[in-house]
Nucleic acid binder design. Structure first.
Lengths: 126, 126
DNA sequence: ATACTTGCAAAGGATTTGCATTGGC
DNA sequence: GCCAATGCAAATCCTTTGCAAGTAT
């Protein structure tokens, strides 16, 4: 594993996940000043292919990368943009049942209002 | 509603759904020879915004459009590319529960092997 | 030496946008 | 005539790719 690839993986593991290629690139630059965006994309692609990280596509068509390689759903807060994993295994269980066990991959992105924003909204109302 | 916009909607309703902008454009051309791809995109955007149709993003980042406006999951066959709706309401029920009723939208795309391809594969094995 | 990675820049594809023109009311 | 919607082309965004140079073994 090259220095660049290793750094990309480290950044992803260090953060709480869910970074775009551009964000990872910006972060990586702080340590390897002349790293290129192309390399970041290339390394991300390989890390995905080899199962070190996961990737999912947002509704605007761009991707974010995730330190958790196995399939799991994501919650995107429509207020603050924060992205969380769905821990609940029900969804994957359902999908396995629906696809009669032939499930290969699943992408679940649900837009909602996160607990923090719910609180803020309720507080504002009160 | 303009002639172009109406045609776009009609194509989507006529097909079994799940068409890309480019496919809709090709279809539309047969009836309005000089319709432009830009217009197709513009009309699709408005139809989505106004709740006439749905849209979802494939794992390669491109979008397909869907005559069913309310959120529902999709099954993409990894063998033949066929796209089907998930009729089972479990997933949405789960998501509603997980998001404590704040679910705004959900995109579920599961890659699997469709029943037809399963049969072909089994037949080939035999 | 050899094979794998890089940086860079150019290419690619999907989608959006600016603008003059057109078409319906 | 007026406003909204169009066609066209250029622009934008994210991502991939070709290639010469660099790196490690």
């Amino acid at each position: 594993m090259s220095r660049q690839k290793d750094l990309v993986l480290e950044i992803l593991n260090g953060s709480r996940g869910h970074l775009s290629a551009a964000q990872i690139y910006e972060s990586a630059r702080e340590r390897i000043h002349n790293i290129s965006l192309g390399t970041v994309y290339r390394d991300l692609g390989e890390l995905c292919r080899d199962g070190y990280i996961g990737r999912f596509v947002l509704s605007d068509g761009s991707s974010v990368y995730d330190r958790t390689p196995f399939p799991h759903g994501h919650l995107v807060c429509s207020e603050c943009g924060r992205i969380d994993d769905i821990e609940d295994p029900c969804l994957m269980d359902d999908l396995n049942r629906i696809t009669a066990g032939t499930l290969i991959s699943a992408e679940i992105v649900a837009e909602h209002i996160c607990p923090d924003c719910r609180s803020s909204i309720n507080r504002a109302k009160a």
